[in-house]
Design a protein around this nucleic acid. Structure first.
Lengths: 342, 342
DNA sequence: CAGAGTCAATGAACCGGTTCCAAATCCGCT
DNA sequence: AGCGGATTTGGAACCGGTTCATTGACTCTG
């Protein structure tokens, strides 16, 4: 917290006995500088403790070397994994990451996009609350910087990285049906976003293939938090003809469902079968261990970051790219030992 | 991605038929502007789709309205909770958060601090790998912006927010001793950082109070990841006179320890007693549930953010502040049913 | 040795805001 | 009407870099 005025490039130039343009060229590794000039500039920099001002450097033409990420809630472990992997890629490329949670609120998303544009951020990685919202779609398509969407699929002209949640859901439901279940409850998030929408599609597809009618009451599509997952699970369990298995398809909602089971005196694996929509320590290490859908989260973050850097480096309009990562079912626990019970 | 050149404040002034100074005053809510001038400026802004350039705005004098956070690994749920809470406070105050993981590497920490200073970040929230390192201490003390340390205690002149991990460790060890244990293994992180150091101090203190000699071999202080926690737990279990209880004191390492127990055929609660150093869904919902230390993580993040904003708003040198949040033991699981077993 | 060509160095102009002094305008009062 | 003080407006200077046309020195060639 020194109060001393910071040295500028002009101070360095004066001390080195050179013009400020020469100093600038030294700083930017421009080829046409004599080794001798380079040396005296470096000495002056050392002597004055000069530090380049990135704000000023971004003024005229050079870019800001900043990228941003606006994601629903980055304290959800899966999202934290994406972001951490992406941040590593960005940092190694000399970019700094701006991060914000949107809490899945459209207004926050719009405000953040505006703020990022004002800060001249060079690219954005984001989710959005509602893929069908025209204002969001327009703002994203018209943004002054490239955008990569995470786990969102509408907006055909925008790069995106996603996991194949439909396939995942199909595997989960197949698995439960192969264990004999026909009434499978589903705890899932808002279908306005791709992950939940495609999981529901997968759920329906397997039912259709197997000729099992879907009971709409079994699909609970409001889970955005563990508290809601708890309530929705309780609701499912309190119906007359209650499900014999649950597909906890929303991200990171297994804990809420387990709490609900526990408070209803039910044990997973004994009284009800479960598949979790995203893998976690809790699914792996619970008793019994719980089958879960899994995909490479770090890979997803890295992909997103690299696609974004690509666009930044080469801003020519090109066909949008879409990376879809495979989702696989990790089967756990003792095999189900018979018919569903009440 | 419109290719149209963006409107500047001068374009707005021209269109409104006013001077650029007047436009600037309108933008900054300066009082001495007639409602009429304000109106025509706003119309011009609307018509041109003008957006203020935050980079240019920060050039002359105004601040950057950016704060940064450099934390060990923000995909650790506890850290993600801190950061999310802090980001909310910052965003509501009009600040944007820059985030980076340091992976607990000194070089990364130093490089990030330098980068933040160059970007004219107004404040920093951070952890550091080694509190005793002179170069880090000097860089932090001499930083051009205020810094708040998270869960770090040395550096008496710097604001800091921490949890009372020593008290937590004491409660954990007391609890285990009151269950009859005398050989308590400890999985803990690097004592170069406050949390592990103070947990070890708490462990020793309770031993001393109870007149139990500390077997140094029971303190495994290298756990920075679940893989290491796994190995360290295995090492503890393979000793001749193995511990009858474990205090898994490192942040978020319970999963590694549970994997080790499982692969050694041991069940927590039956074959060995556990206390986790940080609470999690896994501790709460495992079978049996595992006692854990708990503190208000969101509160910690909010405190840190507010202390930082305070310093930014009033940069007068003041006595450093230190907030220490209480840690409490959440006791879970069936009471231990007898003497320790092998 | 003149002329062309190469390369390093110079420093004014520029980026798009904010700041602030000076000028213009307005208003109330005698 | 004339004056003083307050308020609003104008616009040049400034922030600290980058860019680039220009200059100057030096080398190469015929």
């Amino acid at each position: 917290m020194t109060g001393i005025k910071k040295a500028t490039i002009r101070d360095v130039a004066a001390r080195a006995g050179l013009a400020l343009g020469t100093v600038s060229r030294v700083l930017n590794d421009h080829p046409s500088v004599t080794p001798q000039a380079r040396k005296s500039v470096q000495e002056a920099i050392e002597a004055l403790g000069y530090q380049r001002d990135a704000v000023a450097g971004s003024m005229r033409n050079a870019r800001t070397k900043m990228v941003a990420c606006a994601i629903r809630d980055f304290d959800i472990p899966a999202f934290a994994s994406y972001v951490k992997a992406a941040e590593g890629v960005f940092r190694r490329a000399g970019y700094t990451l701006l991060l914000a949670s949107t809490s899945n609120e459209k207004d926050v998303e719009l405000a953040l996009l505006r703020g990022f544009a004002q800060r001249r951020v060079e690219g954005v990685m984001m989710t959005m609350s509602d893929e069908a919202d025209a204002e969001l779609a327009e703002t994203i398509a018209g943004a002054p910087m490239p955008i990569v969407l995470i786990d969102r699929e509408l907006l055909p002209d925008v790069d995106r990285v996603m996991a194949d949640h439909q396939s995942g859901a199909e595997q989960a439901v197949q698995h439960l049906m192969s264990l004999g279940h026909r009434r499978i409850g589903m705890i899932v998030g808002d279908p306005a976003a791709y992950p939940s929408r495609s999981r529901i599609a997968g759920y329906r597809r397997v039912h259709a293939q197997r000729g099992v009618a879907v009971d709409e009451a079994l699909i609970r599509d409001h889970a955005l938090s563990n508290e809601i997952a708890f309530r929705e699970t309780c609701a499912l369990l309190s119906t007359a003809d209650r499900p014999t298995a649950l597909f906890v398809a929303a991200m990171d909602m297994l804990a809420g469902t387990l709490r609900a089971l526990r408070s209803n005196g039910l044990q997973p694996g004994r009284d009800i079968d479960l598949v979790a929509g995203s893998d976690s320590d809790l699914a792996e290490l619970g008793t019994p261990p719980i089958s879960a859908l899994s995909w490479d989260r770090a890979e997803m973050g890295r992909h997103a970051a690299e696609m974004l850097l690509d666009r930044i480096r080469d801003p020519q309009p090109r066909a949008p790219r879409c990376v879809r990562l495979p989702v696989s079912l990790v089967v756990r626990g003792r095999p189900y030992d018979g018919l569903p019970r009440r």
